[in-house]
Write a protein that binds this DNA or RNA. Structure first.
Lengths: 200, 200
DNA sequence: ACCCAGAAACCGACCGGTTGGTCTTATTAT
DNA sequence: ATAATAAGACCAACCGGTCGGTTTCTGGGT
């Protein structure tokens, strides 16, 4: 199986180069030639593996969605209390952020391209809704386990999700302005605290 | 002064057409010819008033910044209590949102283009920081007037700003999914309530 | 072991179309 | 008259995508 190996290799190199370039310079600015050059691959190879430039983009987006699901699944296995679990997630984001802050930039590309490509739009909307569902489920569990006190879990989940998205957005736009990873942790812990019953 | 009038007229028509098209289809997809056609203006006129396509974009961005300052100034003149003032602002956003939801789309374009254009980046960062400063100042006023109780106004302002940005983002990405204007009001009122001291 | 035929992977020159921007010419206001 | 404003034909550069051809792999016949 040497052929499939080689094939997968070039395919993943194209994807990696595209992700890098999309994140750093944006989708439209990045030409197919640029991707091919960065991946050390010819244009023929590119169009052998992908039918179009856009298909690479949606492949990347779907990979993100899959990764997201993996994260969700992993987060739900632990037996921690909800506030602790949220803190752990925030810490995870913080770590990833410090290792590869540029990684998040492509999110903005996904969002921006939503207006032009219906398929991208579907995926981004789905992404948001999954997050919303995840947080709501999480908060509900916190309520039922007694670690949280929330009147309207739907609204509260919206608040948490919005805060996270807003923080992410600011981190992408102004990476040097703040330690957004740390800020994410503090904001989330503040939110968790305010949702954990009255003030003793 | 008939000549300057005419000049301003075409200039503003170009700006309006560009804003519309940028918001609806995106910056890169919108060609100069498209803008000219939509504005009912020739390419010569376009390049008479603007040195480049990009300059129209930053002109639009600066107009947004100026409008933002106007809103801030207007918001600070009223003698309302801070929670009420926030509610009024949310109501204002809600109203604008229902009248012209598409209007906000261009924000995403501004953000997405930050990575490619340093000038755009400066402006968007400034935009965010002004918002942050505004909210922090607002919360501080709330504390000093006794209507709010906040431990760390900086962090709290970050939370409010993040929530607003996240809600805005979701509204742009999934306009049909929720009544984001109404949600903005509810989330902000929820935040204000949680910041208004203990629970009586 | 060797060969060969077909398939899969890859190459890069090339094409049609589009785009941002220029330039010459015409119109309008002063 | 003349300077500001507008018109639109035009251009060079680029870009996504195609296509004919080449290399590399694989599996079977001998």
């Amino acid at each position: 199986m040497k052929q499939e190996e080689r094939s997968q290799e070039t395919r993943s190199r194209i994807l990696a180069a595209a992700e890098q370039s999309f994140a750093e310079h944006g989708y439209d600015v990045t030409s197919v030639d640029t991707i091919c050059h960065a991946a050390g691959v010819s244009k023929g190879a590119f169009y052998h593996h992908f039918p179009s430039k856009g298909s690479v983009f949606v492949a990347l987006l779907n990979a993100w969605l899959a990764e997201l699901d993996r994260q969700f699944a992993a987060a739900q296995t632990g037996g921690e209390s909800v506030p602790r679990q949220v803190a752990a997630m925030a810490a995870g984001v913080n770590e990833i952020y410090h290792v590869a802050g540029t990684k998040w930039n492509i999110l903005l590309e996904f969002w921006a391209k939503s207006k032009a490509d219906p398929e991208v739009a579907r995926s981004t909307v789905e992404m948001i809704r999954r997050y919303q569902g995840f947080f709501q489920q999480l908060l509900d569990r916190g309520v039922s386990e007694g670690s949280l006190r929330v009147e309207n879990s739907n609204l509260a989940a919206t608040l948490v999700l919005s805060a996270v998205l807003g923080l992410l957005l600011q981190g992408i736009l102004d990476p040097e302005g703040q330690d957004w990873g740390a800020l994410m942790q503090r904001v989330l812990s503040m939110l968790m605290e305010s949702m954990s019953g009255g003030k003793p």
